[in-house]
Nucleic acid binder design. Structure first.
Lengths: 154, 154
DNA sequence: CTAAGATTTAGAGCGTGCTCGAAGTCAAGC
DNA sequence: GCTTGACTTCGAGCACGCTCTAAATCTTAG
């Protein structure tokens, strides 16, 4: 992920002006204009963004909010297809709340698993870092216990 | 990640037998045989795995250990290329500990950032889950505050 | 010795998620 | 009206990390 920070701005007043250009929406959501269009094509954006008479997109605050939600889901590893499914559920309206909840809870479980794994792996990396720090501090006195091939601690 | 759990087994005694077949190594590391070969080709495995006279790979415990380290690095998002760089440093032997440490610390920073982001996004997901739970419990009384288009809470 | 199954190589193929490009359209300032 | 630059569509291209294939070779059980 390229981590372009969304630029916080005063919220777009509902029904004021005609909404934001795609460039502005990109700036505010941290998602490139290319990707905004891609998300739309991919079916992540259910409630069609308004258009000017000439066909240019005009984003409202609700559109931005939804896109930001999508980035959070993506940022936790939810695949595009699943986000699309969620978007479909949302756009279908009332009556499928249970299914939306199931979807989110399933995802939540994956995220917590991901977190746990990440934390565990981090521990191992930290341990390796400690080893290198110690070795550098001590001046390389502990190379002996990896006798097989050159290289020392792996 | 397909999360195939590595199968813990008594460590391969050093220099006993001739080492493990690739299938067995795959089972123990949780990495497919295909991927084990790919990792080798990609330069992640520096100390060449032993071969039988006929050319089959024979894995020793140290080989397995290294591969498992690679999976931990992968599991925290380190790209193949960076792991290869690390592997090169390790195989070069003594004298570049500082560089190895730098590499690991840079990665550590990325992992902690990743963790923080993941935790924050998880909070948002949890909040959404709470909303749906509440709504389901209450029987959909709170649809009103999303007046724009059908769909209610997004 | 033979048959069956595991392993080898190098290269091709694939799924995902963007990212870019081309050719045309629109909008705003002058 | 003209120019400039942002925006449009939609298909192609790309980076990554596997994953699979084919044809040959090795190993092992019987």
């Amino acid at each position: 992920m390229l981590e372009v920070k969304p630029q916080p701005e005063p919220a777009v007043p509902p029904e004021t002006g005609a909404g934001l250009s795609i460039a502005e929406a990109a700036r505010r959501t941290g998602v490139s204009a290319h990707t905004l269009r891609y998300y739309e094509r991919a079916g992540l954006v259910i409630n069609a963004v308004d258009r000017t008479s000439g066909g240019r997109r005009r984003y409202r605050q609700l559109d931005l909010d939804w896109i930001v939600i999508c980035t959070k889901l993506r940022g936790t590893g939810m695949p595009i297809k699943v986000i699309r499914r969620y978007a479909e559920l949302v756009s279908e309206g009332y009556g499928n709340e249970q299914e939306r909840l199931d979807l989110l809870e399933a995802h939540r479980a994956e995220v917590t698993a991901q977190l746990a794994e990440l934390q565990q792996n981090l521990k191992i990396i930290d341990h390796k870092i400690d080893v290198y720090r110690g070795r550098l501090a001590v001046g390389d006195a502990d190379q002996l216990w990896a006798p097989r091939r050159p290289g020392g601690t792996r």
